[in-house]
């Protein structure tokens, strides 16, 4: 049999298949990179090259110039500081001294008798962030603002280290009665389970440990988030959730975490 050459333009199969592939590729590329970008009514290209780059997926720069600034302060705290996860004994000691001014509300052992949050055993990143936000004004509170105004970063880190070091109050709660919203959230309303950030299921950095917090405090914070009076949750996690919670759910989570349920 005569050897038929495959890779040759005289071979019909070769020329047809390569030709067709080229035609399809080129025509789809012309459509995709030129005709369609121009057909888009919103397109404002400065030229052909601009249109091609856009269709090829180069990021468009213009939008980066006019970022809308919010009319309120946003949190600027950095939570990745190594000192927050492994504090030195000196830091804890200094924190203990500084904490004396806090004891009147938060309790000498970090356990409050005044419906202020219990700080004993709270994550260091959480305490640091809240103090930072009180100082910057990202979170406002008539009592805490003046205290934080006089603190420097060192003080905040030390206080965080000290409170994180104190033992948590033991939980007295019966785990069988976990409200559905804590364990499962409400997917249809876009509410993730509370426990998926605040402990028990999963912990996300920056989210406080809620067990044992006063019910009145938790309830008040959820209502502040819902109304927008508190907005130092940088990505709006808590504002979005709190707005979608029902009144009953707010009461239920507050008393569940307080351990009074």
């Amino acid at each position: 049999m005569n050897p038929e050459r495959l890779l040759s333009l005289t071979n019909r199969w070769f020329s047809t298949s390569v030709g067709l592939t080229l035609v399809i590729f080129l025509s789809s590329a012309i459509c995709g990179f030129l005709l369609l970008p121009y057909a888009d009514a919103d397109s404002r290209f400065s030229g052909i090259w601009d249109a091609i780059c856009n269709a090829a997926g180069f990021p468009v720069k213009s939008s980066a110039t006019d970022i809308i600034q919010p009319e309120f302060k946003i949190s600027g705290a950095t939570l990745g500081l190594a000192e927050l996860t492994s504090p030195s004994p000196q830091s804890i000691g200094r924190g203990a001294t500084l904490a004396q001014q806090c004891a009147i509300c938060h309790g000498p052992e970090g356990v409050s008798r005044a419906d202020a949050p219990n700080l004993a055993g709270q994550y260091a990143q959480v305490i640091y962030k809240q103090l930072h936000d009180f100082r910057s004004g990202a979170r406002t509170n008539a009592t805490m603002g003046p205290f934080a105004a006089h603190m420097n970063d060192r003080d905040m880190i030390d206080l965080a280290a000290y409170y994180a070091y104190l033992p948590r109050i033991p939980s007295s709660r019966d785990s069988a009665e976990v409200p559905l919203i804590v364990a499962s959230g409400a997917p249809t309303r876009g509410i993730a389970p509370c426990g998926s950030c605040h402990g028990t299921i999963e912990r996300k950095i920056g989210s406080p440990w809620l067990n044992g917090q006063p019910a009145a405090y938790i309830e008040a914070q959820l209502r502040y988030f819902a109304s927008g009076a508190r907005r130092n949750d940088t990505n709006q996690q808590m504002r979005n959730i709190a707005r979608a919670l029902t009144d009953d759910e707010i009461k239920a989570v507050a008393s569940y975490y307080a351990g009074t349920q």
């Binding site: 399809i24 590729f25 789809s28 590329a29 459509c31 995709g32 990179f33 970008p37 269709a55 997926g57």
Partner: peptide, 16 residues
């Protein structure tokens, strides 16, 4: 992360 042009080219070949 993929440009619309490439998405179009891939749809054309998908049709084939």
């Amino acid at each position: 992360m993929v440009g619309a042009g490439f998405k179009f080219v891939h749809s054309v070949f998908t049709a084939i």
